[in-house]
Design a binder for these strands. Structure first.
Lengths: 334, 334
DNA sequence: GCTAGAAATTAAAACGTTTGCGGCATTATG
DNA sequence: CATAATGCCGCAAACGTTTTAATTTCTAGC
């Protein structure tokens, strides 16, 4: 499995290997005749440029990293699609890394990506502990946060306004006449969760609705977690009339729990999620949720990343995207 | 953003850079004292080894590639999870590449991956045209096919027996009393589709049921495709009592179409899918389907890949996994 | 036919590692 | 004390490219 190198071609064509390099890359003065000859030869010999040797000298690898916490949540593949498409359009490839919500894995991947000298990293962090990512951005390689708004100011990010998303959802529920609204969140510490929780509580406060602490529960951004927490909620004596779920995946678990409990969605309890993953629109599901521009998020992340890479600009870029309520069939007036 | 190299450390420690290399990698004779000194220094200076320079000399990158046709189909993320976990356990990282069912992209990615000199590739091919993949396996880098059984004999693959899967599903439908069973497939040319189709037709033949050609339709492994083809099917005059869908995603589209048409699943038409993606078990969906060990597929793929990498064995390895019917609520006796 | 200048090509250094070989201390052996 | 063995470490080549500077070849004008 010995691969053919530029030197092999040079020998075969009886020229220096500098000439071969130029003939192949094209962006240097070289006669048409030799260029053609060499290219033909290269193809015949089955030459594939060694990107890693090239990376060593040019200092760029035309590679990006994308770190996601859960590839099993359809939200992230959609973002990934945007990341990938935009990267490809610009001649970049992407390393997709999945942390399974483990901080340790996130750190490992960060190190590995930098070790491979990727030109930039987009990351949807696993937790609120992002010091390693910030440090990397400052000293080693540009990073932009996807679907996450860091508490620290001088980071790049593109995110949907989670606070506003929650506001919209809560206001909608209130407009439907609900007063007893529970919140089943994901990881309590995560920024996404914090903003959504804040939007929810603020709206309730604004309408002078007292917050029952038993109505606020946290777990993980997973179906199982939504299911479990809702069970707990339903066993207690004061059952809410509506539930705001931390995201669509959680919402699916919430609904499952409600129906297993013998209650109906939306007749007994209304449910709204966040994200609008593709399965939310299934006829059988028809989940009311707050849409988040997933694909666009991915695209924009790469755009700002490439910008940073190109001009070395260290100033933080922030992009806030607009959420949108999409009303389907899991909510009902009271 | 100048990164610190082994030479910088050597200078600081006042030793040769060979010594630094040895101190860091550890697997060479070196005194404990200098080893400690150098490691401490390296940490202080924020050294991250340049994996690409290392790869250039050692000829291996500790990196695998995984090419999938559609990251948006939950089937693949689950396989990817298995691939990743097993790779990580063995000190490898994986490049996840998504072709969006485009052969051209598959070829591009293959070239890019080889350019980056990944140590091995696992691929779920986009089409039945796999010559480029086979060629790569023979001359450049070991590749194993995931969830795909090539027509050519001397390839590595780990797949679930698609023929058997279809047999199981068809037999089940027959046992329920169905005689008018349609098949809504994915890409007609794909191997997966061919085996499933064959299993289906063979079973019907065995039971002396004549195959209506209008009952067999092909499109893509996508929800939209299943939806569209089912619409066509329902408009025709001879409506089937059961539909075998090419996979779960298609099945979801099939069900959508049936219900939009004013019919009920399973009361008017039974539906069964393949794969058992996580959403199939949702309370609202409860899709009867044929389970395929997705995570295991991923794991096994990298196991055989690593084996090939380690001992350079060129003999093809085949692994067939067992499907399993999981009965839920989209089928009914007649 | 000469020469200036442009065009095409080559030589060689550089990128950041690993590693085989050789050399020098240090210790063990006789 | 001389020698052999051992343990550490340095030198330098190698990996496959790109690229700058130098050199050769070509073209054209006189």
């Amino acid at each position: 499995m010995m691969s053919v190198t530029i030197k092999d071609i040079a020998k075969a064509a009886n020229v220096s290997y500098a000439t071969v390099s130029r003939a192949l890359s094209g962006h240097s003065e070289i006669s048409d005749k030799t260029k053609k000859k060499i290219r033909k030869l290269a193809k015949e010999m089955g030459y594939t440029p060694n990107a890693i040797a090239k990376g060593l000298v040019t200092k760029n690898t035309k590679t990006l990293g994308f770190i996601v916490p859960d590839i099993t949540n359809p939200f992230f593949p959609e973002v990934a699609q945007g990341v990938e498409d935009c990267a490809n359009r610009n001649g970049y490839q992407v390393f997709l890394c999945n942390t399974s919500w483990k901080l340790e894995k996130e750190k490992q991947y960060l190190k590995a990506l930098y070790g491979k000298r990727v030109d930039g990293i987009v990351v949807s962090p696993t937790s609120n502990d992002i010091t390693h990512l910030v440090e990397a951005d400052r000293n080693k390689v540009p990073v932009v946060f996807a679907a996450y708004r860091p508490a620290i100011a001088d980071c790049n990010f593109v995110a949907t306004d989670d606070y506003k998303s929650a506001e919209i959802a809560a206001e909608y529920l209130l407009k439907l006449g609900h007063r007893k609204i529970a919140y089943i969140g994901g990881q309590q510490e995560s920024c996404t969760n914090k903003y959504r929780l804040k939007g929810y509580t603020d709206v309730l406060k604004k309408h002078d609705i007292s917050l029952s602490p038993s109505y606020i529960k946290h777990g993980a951004f997973r179906q199982q977690s939504g299911y479990q927490l809702t069970k707990e909620l339903l066993i207690a004596n004061d059952v809410p009339t509506a539930i705001l779920a931390g995201n669509d995946i959680i919402a699916l678990g919430v609904i499952q729990a409600i129906e297993e409990f013998g209650l109906d969605v939306p007749n007994n309890i209304s449910v709204v999620g966040f994200d609008d993953i593709s399965f939310a629109s299934l006829d059988k599901v028809q989940l009311t949720t707050v849409f988040q521009p997933k694909y666009t998020t991915g695209e924009l992340c790469v755009e700002v990343l490439l910008q940073k890479i190109k001009d070395g600009d260290q100033n933080p870029t922030h992009k806030m995207l607009e959420p949108e309520l999409v009303i389907r069939r899991t909510c009902k007036g009271i």
